[in-house]
């Protein structure tokens, strides 16, 4: 890393420092950075990201691993992802029990019915119920079901969310305005390897008889990560 790597300066790692995704919040002994420290890290490192991205892009193009056109087309495809897709998938599951069963059993195949290709990853759909509230995070980087939701929002990539969603998920949920009763299990999914996660929110009460089209608009991106619940306006 560069000499600006903030970890080397501000925190005494007790374990040998590796390049293990420079795991930002975990110091190997269970201690966690405080929110205030973390925001400092974000500001400092953000200055480096464009330079790192540009350097990496130049290297992979020079090596012939991908072409400049491949990168541009991929970004264009991500930007074009329809932000209503997640809502339509959920609405179908809410109105079609057989589809819901398929979605929970094999998420990749079930979203394939909507023309979505999960590529090398597999999709796991986790269902919010009266007893479980699911929350998705990627502590190592920013793994996200991009094939369905497009690019993740900035907060999802922030170090504070990535650190705190695993360590104090209920506090994070409260900050999003989501109060999960103590009797309900908070189940956090760290999207750290080859699976991707999508939350199937609870269908809001008072929507009995609604069509899939009406229901779909109740499901926003944030519902599908689990930071909020789907609500009836």
């Amino acid at each position: 890393m560069s000499p600006h790597d903030p970890h080397d300066h501000t925190h005494g790692h007790s374990h040998p420092h590796s390049h293990d995704h420079a795991h930002p919040h975990d110091h190997g002994n269970g201690s966690v950075l405080k929110y205030s420290d973390d925001s400092v890290h974000d500001v400092r490192e953000s200055d480096l990201y464009p330079l790192l991205a540009e350097a990496l892009r130049a290297i992979v193009v020079d090596k012939g691993l991908v072409s400049a056109a491949d990168i541009r087309e991929h970004l264009e495809a991500l930007d074009k992802i329809d932000d209503g897709m997640g809502g339509r998938i959920v609405a179908r599951a809410w109105t079609d029990p057989e589809y819901k069963r398929r979605l929970l059993e094999n998420g990749s195949d079930a979203v394939g019915e909507f023309g979505i290709d999960m590529g090398e990853t597999q999709l796991i759909v986790v269902e919010n119920t009266d007893t479980v509230h699911n929350l998705v995070v990627c502590t190592l980087c920013s793994c996200y079901p991009r094939a369905i939701l497009g690019l993740p929002p900035d907060w999802y990539k922030s170090k504070s969310y990535r650190a705190r969603a695993v360590n104090e998920p209920r506090a994070v949920l409260r900050e999003f305005g989501t109060l999960v009763p103590e009797s309900v299990i908070v189940r956090v999914h760290d999207s750290n390897a080859d699976m991707r996660y999508l939350v199937l929110p609870k269908r809001p009460s008072g929507t009995e008889g609604w069509s899939a089209e009406q229901l779909a608009v109740l499901v926003t991106r944030d519902c599908l990560v689990g930071v909020v619940s789907a609500t009836k306006p």
């Binding site: 998920p169 209920r170 299990i185 908070v186 760290d190």
Partner: peptide, 10 residues
């Protein structure tokens, strides 16, 4: 948080 809270990863 309550003792039943869970975390899952790969």
């Amino acid at each position: 948080g309550p003792v039943h809270d869970l975390l899952e990863l790969e």
